[in-house]
Amino acid sequence: MREQPRKRDSIQTQERILLAAQAEFARKGYDGARVDAIIARAKISKNLLYHHFGSKEDLYIRVLERTYETLRRRQGDVPLAGLDPVEAMRRLCESTFQVFIDEPDIIVMLNTENLHRGKHIAKSPIIRALYNRLSDTIRTILDEGVRQGVFRPNVDTVELYISMSALGYFYLSNRFTLSLLFERDLKAQENLARRKAHIVDMVLSYLTNGAPQGRWTPSAASIPLAGDAGADTPS
């Protein structure tokens, strides 16, 4: 059955509003964002916006949900089923970092929500459910790694994901100050590739340390380049 024109128009209008709202919230945060600016950007009336979203907070929560949905969808787009646990974990590490690179608004939105102490995501059951599924995926990979003897046992899935995410999140959220301090362009493609390899090495070195058959060789891309202005030098 073909989608009814009215329903299709409604979905397209909501999408236009959400895109405009994401741009406004990402630029100015929740407190600084203005509904009138969102309306102007979306080219709709105020009545139409409030027809689809009851308040500024409702709209912001929906944008947050889309932000987390994008993060989880991009991670979920990476096929992990059937892979050996080391390769599955490597791909999960890489995809988590890559989505932060490709979707910079995610970092801005998460920073804003943390300034508000998470009070808006607390009102969304959708976001919590997304992370329950992520924990299940990580636990499946870890359990298989333990069964094969390549991962250490008793790894906490929450602690692991926080560490995996933080290794990329901090790098990108602080890239402007760190680039100046260390005289290294952190957004340069070669440095992004090196960071991605470094994240994989850090996570897999931890997981394989102490495992019966745990072996991990650091990637060449994670080794500092000779003559790099940002590389450590003897004092």
Rank of each mutant, 00 (worst) to 15 (best):
N132F: 10
R133Y: 13
R133L: 07
R133P: 00
L134N: 04
S135Q: 09
S135R: 08
D136N: 00
D136C: 00
D136L: 00
D136R: 00
D136A: 01
T137S: 05
T137K: 03
I138Q: 01
I138W: 01
I138S: 01
R139Y: 04
R139E: 02
R139A: 03
T140N: 03
T140G: 03
T140K: 01
I141F: 00
I141E: 01
L142D: 04
D143I: 03
D143E: 09
E144T: 10
E144W: 06
G145A: 08
G145Y: 03
G145P: 04
V146T: 09
V146H: 04
V146I: 11
V146S: 07
R147H: 13
R147I: 12
R147S: 15
Q148V: 14
Q148H: 10
Q148L: 15
G149F: 14
G149Q: 13
V150S: 11
V150L: 08
F151M: 05
F151L: 04
F151R: 01
F151V: 12
F151P: 06
P153S: 11
P153C: 06
N154H: 12
N154K: 09
N154T: 13
V155H: 02
V155M: 06
D156R: 03
D156W: 04
D156T: 01
L160W: 02
L160N: 03
Y161N: 08
Y161F: 13
Y161E: 13
Y161W: 05
Y161C: 07
I162V: 14
S163Q: 14
S163K: 14
M164T: 15
M164Q: 09
M164K: 09
A166S: 15
L167N: 10
G168F: 14
